[in-house]
Design a binder for these strands. Structure first.
Lengths: 212, 212, 212, 212
DNA sequence: TATGAATGAGGTTTCATTCAT
DNA sequence: CATGAATGAAACCTCATTCAT
């Protein structure tokens, strides 16, 4: 279960998010609880994970969890929210630094893959796999964050279409990409034969979006 | 929840599978149980569906379920197995009838989308979404069926690469496609603005595999 | 599970009981059901044996059992009643043939051990081990049979005391003997190193009741 | 259901076992659970006792039982283990204090009868009556304890034979005694006409082991 | 803040029994 | 007589949650 180490840049970004109160300090009790929960939810599913499992993982007793979260579902919501916020911050800063559409596309793909594969938090995959475990209210809350995130993708894909990089409608292409990227969590492994960098290249290639 | 009506051809194919004992007659008690279970598992997840829910849906009492299946998990396994077998039969017959690689590719995409969107059974999406709810033994059993199914895809994609339709490695391309197709269950709706036929076209377009 | 074969005499006695309607013909469907039930009740206990177990053993389906018996408990009652009646008949005929008290005592011990160890029916042990599984009404019914049976023992033991074979009160001695004999079902095996005849001798020896 | 009060000596011995961690403090929640379970198992049998029965007896809800024991069977196992350990401790201390074989024999009989009749715990009878309700693994565990216990008996009986108190083989005599003693639970009652002390005398008399 | 015993609703599963065929 | 699908009550057990300490 070796997680790729976040780079210095990423740590700095994370520290900033923490200081803004958007993300919980991963060293705090609450932060360790979130990390452990995300890990377990990914392995066994939300419904398949008990609060006792989580408590055991973090070294406390199950009752103590409810000092940090009002109920189990709120843990999932927090994991999801932080996963989006972390990823979003990185995507926005990446897009801001780049100019060409293919480069931006590539950066977005990279950020999303990094999020999916657990660089700075493993919670991103849960957004799709455990979506239905959220109550309607929580879904609405998270959806707002997701929309900011999806908006960024759409903008870049719209540019791509306008500039002739693809013929597929942005909203369709985004759906295809989302599915293809999410699925990587089922077969791609960091530290495997294929590097993350290579994977990003192949995805850009398959999408017809290759930097000249 | 209006399901698209299976065409006459599809009904004939299904009847054949039933007569071969590969698939349960959907009119039989067991068949209705499977259909109801698949529906509920898709809506609320395997863990989120109780056997009482299933029994209520099919109009029997919860205890009666266990005349047909030894336990809840075996229902999921049966749903998955039948979903694969049904789809596989249709894919094999489609590929056998067609000659060119793009036409075959298109046929496979169409079959898989039909399976995902519940034409002749709703169970196909569960293969990914509820995979981890299967015990290790059941996973191994289903995996054997899945491999026959994935093999067919790989063959066609290998032809596509050899014939210059794509530059992406077949196994990668298949992963991307699987993800993109599976994700359609979250946003595409039969009877919506976009027809299934159009969706197939757009996917072929995005994959660079367009029949001349 | 080789059962000792009943001797010719025993078979004749059994046939007589059958013809009197006191015992079910072991070759009849009902008789095979009783034999199978007794076997299973002994192995797994009454509560631990399901009617499906019994049906499977006898090669029918569970529902069919209720053509022969109104409910599960009535099977146990029948097994017990027949076990007592069979044993009682043999004891009475043995006592009638013998004159001296030690010989009679020995015959009773022998009959009881034969009953316990499944010569002509395995049901005898159930009388103690599964007694509490009987409803109050059934217990009362069986108790009447048991009393005839216990009466025979007490008579002989009373003679033994009167004739100076033992100093222990008949009712106490009978309790001790019953326990010791019942316990043999947990350790003594026909066809083992110790023969049944030897076992009878040792018990008479331990009870101080040795024929000169 | 009036239980004989344990004497001061017995209470001291029990306290020692508790402090050694071999036996659960009968005043603790777990201890009360064990006592109630033993009582009910004896009355209605293991299979005939529900966890709700036990919970009701001790004044908690059924779910709460599973904080103390992982499942119902483990309660039975614990009851049995503690019954053996308690009895064993008393037997060992009694044998250590006495010198002659008949005196030792008498002490063992007394200890076993006290255990059977619920002085300091009612669980002893369950060892035989509910033995088969234990899983194979649990049986093996308990068997180890039982062997220490039976070993003590065999030693004393071997001395008895060597010293001419009896002609019966120790292993046979022990089987007879075990059965006779166990059976007392079906007919002998503390506070009845016959005192426990008298019962012990009669048993020694019947076994030919009477102190001069 | 942490503990751990207790809650209580609800889960899956078992099983004796019924009854139309 | 036998079948086998269905019943329905009740079994064991799980688990998120509470709360006195």
């Amino acid at each position: 279960m070796s997680q790729a180490q976040p780079s210095q840049t990423q740590q700095a970004e994370l520290a900033q998010l923490v200081s803004q109160g958007l993300v919980t300090d991963p060293a705090s009790p609450k932060g360790r609880l979130l990390a452990a929960s995300a890990q377990l939810f990914k392995q066994k599913g939300f419904a398949g994970t008990t609060v006792r499992d989580i408590a055991a993982e973090v070294g406390i007793l199950s009752g103590s969890i409810f000092h940090h979260f009002p109920n189990k579902e709120s843990i999932l919501k927090a994991v999801m929210a932080e996963a989006i916020l972390t990823c979003l911050a990185r995507m926005e800063s990446a897009v801001a630094k780049l100019e060409t559409t293919p480069a931006r596309f590539r950066a977005l793909v990279r950020c999303e893959l990094e999020a999916i594969h657990g660089i700075s938090g493993v919670g991103f995959t849960l957004l799709t796999s455990e979506w239905r475990c959220l109550s309607a209210d929580s879904q609405a809350e998270i959806l707002k964050l997701r929309q900011r995130y999806e908006g960024l993708h759409r903008e870049v894909l719209a540019d791509a279409k306008a500039q002739g990089w693809t013929q597929v409608e942005p909203f369709l292409l985004r759906h295809f990409m989302r599915g293809a990227l999410a699925e990587t969590s089922n077969w791609f492994h960091l530290n495997g034969d294929l590097s993350l960098e290579d994977l990003v290249d192949q995805i850009c290639l398959a999408a017809g979006m290759r930097p000249s």
